[in-house]
Design a protein around this nucleic acid. Structure first.
Lengths: 349, 349
DNA sequence: GGCCAATTTGCAATCGATTGAATATTTTGT
DNA sequence: ACAAAATATTCAATCGATTGCAAATTGGCC
């Protein structure tokens, strides 16, 4: 602006890349520059303003790597998704994505950045240690236990700044935040039984303990009610799920009148396939999903589903992690699931 | 296992935290340890195995911060979402989440970690510089241009390792990967016109240039066809969207027979609201979404929508960024959108 | 003007791993 | 058995910012 004939690149005669460069330019020591940029009042107001102006003019910003190394505080939280029993695509699962979105919001608001990684425990057994002890992060959040409960348990014994989204087991060391999955499964099954279902089915792989818990909740209620229960495994990723469900349903649709699924995505696809096969939902088959993602209310008919408080969970995880970072011991949180009644279940008599 | 009476914590008599600790324990210098762990063949096989075994036994892993500082290679890609004109919740927008998911997959496969941050340009004008020059990342991916095209342009002139998801403008410096949004808007509008719509509307804020492009594509076709066009701004986040749409539709539903929306989420909500208001889709009002997210095929009726190749885009972004990191100049990629015909448009006569 | 205290600034060690150059050890050849 | 060559290892500088402590400057006061 001032001197339109001078390209801005050239005005920065020498590129200022380090504190030392800037110190030389300003004619002071690096210590002073460092303090000036940090806004310390150990440095004279005039000097500080001068240095800050110089820094701004040259677009200088201190190397974070060096800074973090020296201060031993990274301001980064590792967020890991273990893909134990599912395929890669899993990471784009809407549930995870929603949780990550809320975590990102919450962490950013607390001044943290988020180092996202995907772990494949089958290939790298030390997936969690690797992140916890990398020196890169102030704390770690694990999204989903998958089949890694014991592995996480081992790490949690030594590394305190760790919060896990998942199921709670009595006596565990890991600090979990999550829904009472057994209860969730039970409530769903009970609702189906209450509206007349006798031939129940559960859709989803039980390899991860969260899903296994949901299944066992269903199982408990089914046993009490003297109903029957079919377990049909299916993947979480939309690519694989549809073909599996199609096959399962083709073989079993007539021996099922109530379905609890491991996720809303499975429920949604199930509803569509059942309808395509000429059965009515909820007339012939009732379906209850899990999660209550936004999409659950948008399908036709809208899904009855077990709601998990994802946003609340994300907030709680970040809050607990912050406590842990400050050195406090932290306690798990088990949230109650809530049945959201929509259009894929019959009215109660 | 060997000595069940000794707790594993105790067996690690001293906790090995640094190379120096391990070096002392092994009776060699840190240099040798560093090389041994790196698997260098400058160190004798026997020594190397010994040191590696020792490291494994004590669960030692080198501090990444220090390593990255020294090597000047971080193995981290910054992924930023500028929330220019939208609210915080934006980050959990399913489109972004899907893109992030694919980016995470692709980056992880290429040995990179992903540092996710959310930027609020209105509060921090130097949001992008801050990340690019932080010394934390080897390269940066920006998801969505929002209203920051010019700001990004400035940064791109000086920082080459930058790839942007968004619209392409002739003569730009930034390397964009994205869909031809003008064309996308045009195709959608043309499809509506072809099946008889004359009173068109576009739903979405035009503050971001991508959405603005889609709008201008629609506008072009509408003008050619001599039809009318109503622009109804609405947010992307589900919280705000519904109320806005409800209001807009209440006022205008009868002067609209074809709608192009800025996203599938908007389209989905629109279809539901229009139906609730006693109009039929696509009978009275046809709707075309944008993105073709998985949810688009699951609604009732399933959405006709303009497909963006998100997975392909993510792959391309990572590939280009890798080239840039290796010092190559890189070229933008404009992908063709594709019309996916489903149930929210009338058959062509 | 001179002395003590308060304020600024500089110096140098530090965070922890990496790596080129120098030194030490082993191997090879005769 | 000895020199030369090949292999292993150590030493010390380096990445770039931070910070305790020491040194220098400034200010206040008699």
């Amino acid at each position: 602006m001032e001197r339109p004939d001078t390209p801005s690149e050239q005005r920065e005669s020498v590129h200022i890349r380090t504190l030392a460069d800037l110190a030389k330019l300003a004619g002071v020591s690096t210590g002073t520059v460092s303090r000036a940029l940090a806004g310390s009042d150990l440095v004279k107001t005039k000097t500080r303003d001068f240095i800050q102006a110089l820094a701004r003019e040259h677009g200088f910003r201190p190397n974070q790597m060096a800074s973090k190394l020296r201060t031993q505080r990274t301001g980064i939280i590792g967020v890991v998704i273990p893909l134990g029993h599912e395929l890669k695509q899993h990471i784009s699962d809407p549930f995870f994505m929603k949780l990550i979105g809320h975590l990102a919001d919450e962490l950013t608001e607390n001044g943290y950045d988020l180092l996202l990684s995907r772990a494949i425990p089958a290939e790298t057994p030390d997936w969690l240690d690797r992140i916890c002890w990398s020196g890169m992060v102030d704390g770690v959040i694990v999204i989903g236990q998958s089949d890694q409960f014991d592995a996480i348990e081992q790490v949690a014994k030594a590394y305190p700044k760790l919060v896990i989204w998942g199921s709670h087991r009595p006596g565990q060391h890991q600090c979990t935040v999550g829904t009472d999955n057994i209860e969730g499964g039970a409530i769903a099954a009970q609702r189906l039984v209450d509206s007349g279902a006798r031939k129940l089915a559960f859709f989803g792989y039980r390899t991860g303990i969260e899903i296994a818990d949901r299944f066992s909740g269903v199982q408990r209620v089914v046993k009490q009610a003297g109903a029957s229960l079919l377990h049909l495994p299916c993947h979480m990723s939309d690519q694989l799920m549809e073909a599996e469900l199609r096959e399962h349903l083709a073989a079993n649709v007539d021996s099922i009148d109530g379905i609890v699924t491991a996720s809303d995505l499975i429920a949604m696809t199930t509803v569509r396939l059942v309808t395509e096969m000429g059965r009515s939902v909820p007339g012939d088959v009732q379906v209850i999903g899990f999660d209550d993602l936004p999409l659950a209310s948008q399908t036709f008919p809208p899904l009855t589903t077990m709601r998990q408080d994802i946003e609340g969970g994300a907030k709680a995880m970040v809050a607990k992690l912050r406590e842990a970072i400050e050195g406090c011991g932290i306690e798990p949180l088990v949230m109650k699931p809530q049945l959201i009644e929509r259009g894929t279940t019959k009215a109660l008599s």
